[in-house]
């Protein structure tokens, strides 16, 4: 039971990072300024590197090799939140997702660095320092653009409104939620969500953006259980396009 719970936790973290890392990497060559091109590429490298660290922990628990886990499962076998798989849209959309996602990720990793399961605690302690910079980057941009031109504010507000239900889907409860909390492995999604709401509210309060009304939102759930939008499978097909040419070869 406990091992299944740990695997479930590892899968959702790793899959979120892989899929969002993939999306971030799609900004390569297309950023609004060169500096952002470089920043999104850095974050993509971190996210994909982090996913590799978590797939490696899964492999140590008897799951397949990281390359197989990432490149050969189908969409229904992925545990990422639907939030991470949505196409990038314009820069405002990607920026809002980055802001909402990384603030949650930072809290998740702070909590995981105290996890009762030592391999997770070790990895989380090592990686949380990198995520700190992702948050710094996101919050700085939201503060800057969130009180700039009318167009920027209105774009960010629209993206915030349309992404909030998906962002709330990140906190979808696992069937192992209570086991993870009781064994001290994970603080649980509710605790993370509460702190997340406080933190993003603080940043938004320093801008001209308005926090959407949370109680009236319907979270987009299902991702943690393999239910995805139409966007995930094409993303996975693209990711596996080369490796599938000769799956037994070394590339």
């Amino acid at each position: 039971m406990k091992e299944e719970a740990i695997k479930d936790l590892l899968y959702k973290i790793a899959d979120d990072q892989l899929i969002l890392g993939h999306r971030n990497s799609e900004w390569t060559g297309l950023g609004p300024i060169l500096e952002e091109d470089i920043a999104f590429s850095s974050m993509a490298q971190d996210k994909i590197g982090h996913s590799l660290a978590f797939y490696t922990l899964l492999h140590e628990l008897g799951e397949a090799e990281p390359d197989l886990l990432a490149f050969s499962r189908s969409a229904t076998q992925f545990h990422n939140s639907q939030f991470t798989e949505l196409p990038n849209g314009e820069f405002d959309y990607s920026l809002i997702r980055h802001f909402l996602y990384d603030n949650a990720e930072a809290i998740r990793f702070e909590k995981l660095s105290h996890s009762g399961y030592e391999p997770i605690a070790k990895v989380a302690t090592k990686l949380k320092g990198e995520i700190k910079y992702h948050v710094l980057h996101a919050n700085t941009w939201i503060r800057n653009l969130g009180s700039s031109t009318e167009e920027a504010i209105s774009r960010l507000q629209n993206s915030l409104n349309s992404l909030m239900p998906y962002a709330l889907g990140m906190f979808e409860l696992s069937v192992y939620e209570q086991v993870l909390i009781d064994t001290g492995i994970y603080a649980g999604e509710e605790a993370i969500k509460e702190e997340w709401l406080t933190r993003i509210q603080q940043v938004l309060a320093s801008t001209e953006l308005t926090m959407p009304d949370i109680p009236s939102q319907t979270p987009m759930l299902g991702g943690r259980y393999g239910t995805h939008t139409k966007h995930l499978q094409p993303l996975l097909n693209e990711m596996a396009e080369v490796i599938k040419i000769d799956p037994t070869a070394e590339w």
């Binding site: 297309l30 950023g31 609004p32 300024i33 952002e36 820069f91 800057n144 653009l145 700039s148 920027a152």
Partner: peptide, 8 residues
């Protein structure tokens, strides 16, 4: 597509 960002 990035013009509004640079303007802002």
């Amino acid at each position: 597509r990035g013009a509004w960002v640079r303007l802002a």
